[in-house]
Design a protein around this nucleic acid. Structure first.
Lengths: 195, 195
DNA sequence: CGAGAAGTTGAAGCGTGTCAAATGCAGTGG
DNA sequence: CCACTGCATTTGACACGCTTCAACTTCTCG
């Protein structure tokens, strides 16, 4: 993924859609298809996107010839898995305010790694309906919760642009700890939390 | 993991515990520690367990010398990730009855792969409190929901032994589709669902 | 047999879902 | 430039699944 946003999702048999992850610029996708026989989920673009492609043959050739490359890819996979685990925690244990705050924190950090934040703002091209599909919270309640976050001056979200006036405060609300993103292996990072 | 059950969990700052996955016999654990610098979660034994261990040096040596081994390990990682995604769906979209049913289906299938089911029964050594930590549903409601599943003859659960009289029926309730477990790469499998 | 853990039960409250309708907003064609 | 269209956001009222609390009972194991 070179630019743009996409999401992974699964459709339940009763027709509802569940977003299980967001794919941001710089993310690898999709290694699944190279290793597993069958995709167990779908991917959809949220904005217009640009991709770089590699064939299965080239992938096999490169990774077999340069195992370090495979290890690096694997590192990426493990980080995605850590993110998925944190989503599990969010959905199971965090209420609406915390769940949404946590998701926004995660997006902001992930965008910052790849240089797509500007001071304390970043793009946030997802609709409230998509937020609903991602968090399992109804769209109506997403709306009310966003308004609460706005009222408490924790976020400014207008026209697909997100500004976080006080990241440390938002993290505190969200019970967000950035360590699960394993930023230490990558370049730029600054943890706004106290610890 | 050679025998016994364990779980991965994270502690929230407010003291609650969230179980983000179960580790069953045959599962690899923990590749994270070999690749990532820092564990972002903890692992606890549920029953007494036996493990096989490999040093980081041996691991590096083997995977660098035999890239196919690394690819196989990676395949395992991707399946774990698929399971984690399905947990995300469960917590976000399934109500208590479906969520618990789904978890039981998953456990049963995973145990069956490694030959730890006997006809339609298997061990289920987790307490209702642990089920609560895994699903985000309060222990009290876990209890009531299990009773409902028992009343509807969907499960028989007594003394850490689970029997599923009609697996297809339970899957239907749970909206369970076994494809996400990617059983096709492994040996024995029988999908009890209609499709 | 005793003690602590696990499971069970009831009552009350609340966070969130659902439904339905109104409003705002962006793109399209006349 | 405006009417038109469809989607996203917002609002209010009401219902319900689930949580919480607190007690009680049943298991398990030394």
């Amino acid at each position: 993924m070179l630019s743009g946003w996409a999401c992974r999702y699964k459709n339940l048999e009763d027709g509802r859609r569940a977003i299980v992850g967001f794919i941001l610029p710089g993310d690898l996708f999709d290694l699944n298809i190279l290793i597993l026989r069958e995709m167990d989920h779908s991917v959809a673009a949220i904005t217009s996107v640009t991709l770089a492609e590699i064939t299965a043959e080239d992938f096999d050739a490169v990774t077999l010839a340069y195992p370090r490359v495979l290890q690096a890819f694997w590192w990426d996979t493990l980080v995605r898995q850590a993110i998925q685990r944190e989503w599990t925690v969010s959905l199971g244990r965090r209420n609406a305010v915390r769940c949404i705050s946590h998701l926004l924190c995660e997006m902001f950090y992930r965008l910052r790694i790849v240089g797509l934040t500007y001071d304390n703002t970043c793009d946030m091209p997802i609709t409230q309906t998509e937020l609903s599909d991602a968090t399992g919270i109804s769209a109506v309640h997403i709306n009310r919760t966003l308004q609460e976050l706005r009222t408490r001056n924790l976020i400014v979200l207008r026209g697909k642009i997100l500004t976080i006036p006080d990241l440390a405060a938002l993290q505190r609300i969200a019970l967000f700890k950035a360590n699960y993103l394993h930023l230490d292996r990558e370049g730029a990072h600054l943890d706004a939390s106290d610890e």
